[in-house]
Amino acid sequence: MLNRLDEALSFHQNALRVRGQRQELIAANIANADTPNFKARDIDFKAAMQSAVAGINKDAFQTAKTSPLHLDGSRASNSNTSAAPGEPLFRPIIQGSVDGNTVDMDVERNQFADNGIRYEASLTLINAQLKQMLAALQSS
């Protein structure tokens, strides 16, 4: 019974964990909006969730090179995805600034609100799932 409860809630647990990490990164971006040379970061939520659900090891995709001229098979070799799933990535620069800061407050505020709403939606889904389980247990 306990394993079924854990299985039922593990997806939402992972979603809340990733959403919480993302909220912290976005808050740090907002807090550093005036810091020279600060680079805005974010998490690729879809990749992070796929990794969390699948239980993928960060270094799982390693390939052997037969020549030093070959590219590495790791995600770190690609400049757009310079981190493993769930690791912070730098946001693309929408509009550069003189001081090198890449934080766009409009983007950050929108992402902060969107992520917060999705976090609350996950909590609502967990609450509904627990109420259904409780009702099923009480009717037995």
Rank of each mutant, 00 (worst) to 15 (best):
D42Y: 14
R22D: 04
H70E: 15
K39V: 10
M133P: 07
I30W: 06
R17P: 05
A84E: 01
V103N: 07
I26K: 03
K65R: 13
V18A: 05
V53R: 00
L25I: 05
M49H: 08
M1D: 06
T81E: 13
D34H: 15
G55V: 02
N57C: 05
T35Y: 02
N115D: 06
S122M: 15
A8R: 13
Y119S: 00
A27N: 08
T81L: 06
I93E: 01
P92F: 04
A52W: 05
D99F: 11
A54S: 04
R118L: 09
S10N: 07
Q62D: 10
I93M: 04
F45Y: 09
K131V: 15
Q132D: 14
D6H: 15
R109Q: 11
A27Q: 03
H70N: 09
L9N: 03
K65G: 02
H70Y: 11
A15V: 08
R22P: 00
V107N: 00
E7T: 13
D104A: 03
A28D: 15
A113H: 09
I43A: 01
F61S: 03
I26Y: 10
R109F: 11
N14T: 13
A121N: 09
H70D: 14
R4L: 12
I93G: 03
L71C: 08
T63Q: 09
N80F: 12
N115Q: 02
P85H: 07
G116D: 04
F38W: 15
S77Y: 10
S51D: 01
A31N: 00
D106P: 00
L125N: 14
I43H: 04
N29M: 01
M1N: 15
L125V: 11
A83E: 08
N78M: 08
G73M: 09
I43E: 12
P36V: 08
